[in-house]
Design a protein around this nucleic acid. Structure first.
Length: 150
RNA sequence: UCAGGUGGCUGGAUGGCUGCUGUUCCCAGCAAUGGGGGCAGAGGAAAGUCCGGGCUCCACGGAAAUACGGUGCCGGGUAACGCCCGGCGAGGGCGACCUCAGGGAAAGUGCCACAGAAAGCAAACCGCCUGGGCUUCGGCCAAGGUAAGGGUGAAAGGGUGCGGUAAGAGCGCACCGCCAUUCCGGUAACGGAGUGGGCAGGGUAAACCCCACCGGGAGCAAAACCGAAUAGGGAUGACAGGGGGCGGCAACGUCACCAGAUCUGUUUUCGGAUCGUCGUCCGGGUUGGUUGCAGGAGGCGUUCGGCGACGGGCGUCCCAGAUGAAUGGUCAUCGGCUCGGGCGUUCGCGUCCGGGUACACAGAACCCGGCUUACAGGCCACCUGACUUA
RNA sequence: GGCCACGUGGCGGAGUGGUUACGCAGCGGAUUGCAAAUCCGUGCACCCCAGUUCGAUUCUGGGCGUGGCCU
């Protein structure tokens, strides 16, 4: 699977849908054609379904020192190569963010975390983060939030 | 047996499934490429970036000097070092052994708060003593000699003891310390012995400073090469703006009109500056790619020289090379750690059963020599002290 | 990866070898019918560990943390 390498792609993906599991955080976004930077071949004639999904990893310094971050990235990469061919959609960019609990979480739980995060992200794929949150949050909370914004 | 000291080593193991990077071989293919196999793949600190080099670029006549920074007992090792080895001195420990930025304070300057009479040049607050004067006989006054005692302080101008004296004082003597000098040992730092001097010269140089030695600056994101698309720069060639009317399907032709936009000086009048489209060429070089980039002050073994650091000879081996960054993920068994229980015990622990487990510190990024810091557990060698037994 | 700078109350921010200013914030009081403003008073600090020194926030060494630059 192709990897995300440029900082611009990571920032674009962070504007998409997001789901936080106990073991990881998943961000996903359908790739716009004009912003596909690292692929000069992807012109407008190829449909989006032929463009493969891409995956990137982010582990910040808050998680730990260098060898801890390496280990977190390896576990996320192993889980992604197992799970993403089952649940990833073509034309999407995915970013997996490691957390402090990634290194201690059991591997099967990590895989279920990734599966639920994929389904959650795809269920709210039409909404960006700026729009109203989906029906998970209670109605009173959304009302107060809208009142505060007003 | 217990308690220590020094030096060195190690840093979980095996297997199954499934991945990554480099390299090589085989097969298919014109090629691009695809499939399969073999081999190699993190550390003692890879860390901190604190020193020293290699290498690259810049500056420069070889270089030297000023400023600045660093180092600082002596001798050796090394490419070099602030590192290492051996020795010396001082301090600590019963000892094995450990620690030390360990040159110069009689070249100069500064500082030593508070307290204290006095903080650096010698002086005298309370005191002590002598003779004199006055006296209400309690003492007081001025002169002189002292620095033993008190008090302050981190520090008060050698220390202890004896003699000595009106009281005292290196005033005299003994020992210790200090200074100068001679001889001996040592390459030297330094040590030992003798003689002389009654003793001057407080501390601070991780305060300025003096002396000796070292240092041109920046760093592989250095540097070299290849090199698009877009925007922008330079040269050159061609065309020159806007809306309207008329003719024409359109391209375009023609007619008159307006001279444009931005910034700015100025009260205004009035000025000043910049700005178009297309083609070709040149130069620069952002994403990216290649080199730099792993055969090196290399590792291992052996032998010789040396107390040692280390050096010489011989043999043998090629041993990570990623770039959003590979060297793994997961499962099982064993091992380790830990918890609970049973048994034994020389009370240190051993063994059996069951449970848990995150399994020390920590991830190469151009390379090398050091230093510093972090580190569960385990192993080896030598040495010291105490106790017991023979 | 490489190269630098800085750590002082809750916050900002001076300072120097000898018990650390100042401002805002906090607390208490005065003033006011009640508040604000004003005035008075008060508490809270030199990142950590060693060394030099009689004495370290300062000087030196080592850690830890924060920030910046090169791309």
């Amino acid at each position: 699977m192709e990897r995300l390498k440029a900082r611009r792609d990571f920032l674009n993906t962070a504007r998409g849908a997001k789901w936080a599991a106990p073991g990881l955080v998943l961000q996903a976004r359908r790739r716009p054609k004009s912003l596909s930077s690292s692929e000069p071949l992807a012109n407008s004639e190829t449909p989006a379904s032929d463009v493969p999904a891409r995956i990137g990893f982010t582990v910040t310094k808050k998680v730990g020192k260098a060898h801890v971050r390496n280990r977190v990235k390896r576990r996320l990469r192993a889980a992604a190569t197992e799970i993403l061919p089952l649940g990833a959609k073509p034309g999407y960019d995915y970013v997996l963010i490691g957390r402090a609990g990634t290194i201690t979480r059991a591997y099967c739980d990590l895989k279920t975390d990734l599966l639920t995060a994929l389904s959650r992200v795809h269920s709210k794929k039409n909404h960006t983060r700026r729009s109203k949150p989906p029906s998970d949050s209670s109605s009173t909370g959304s009302v107060t939030a809208s009142q505060k914004q007003g």
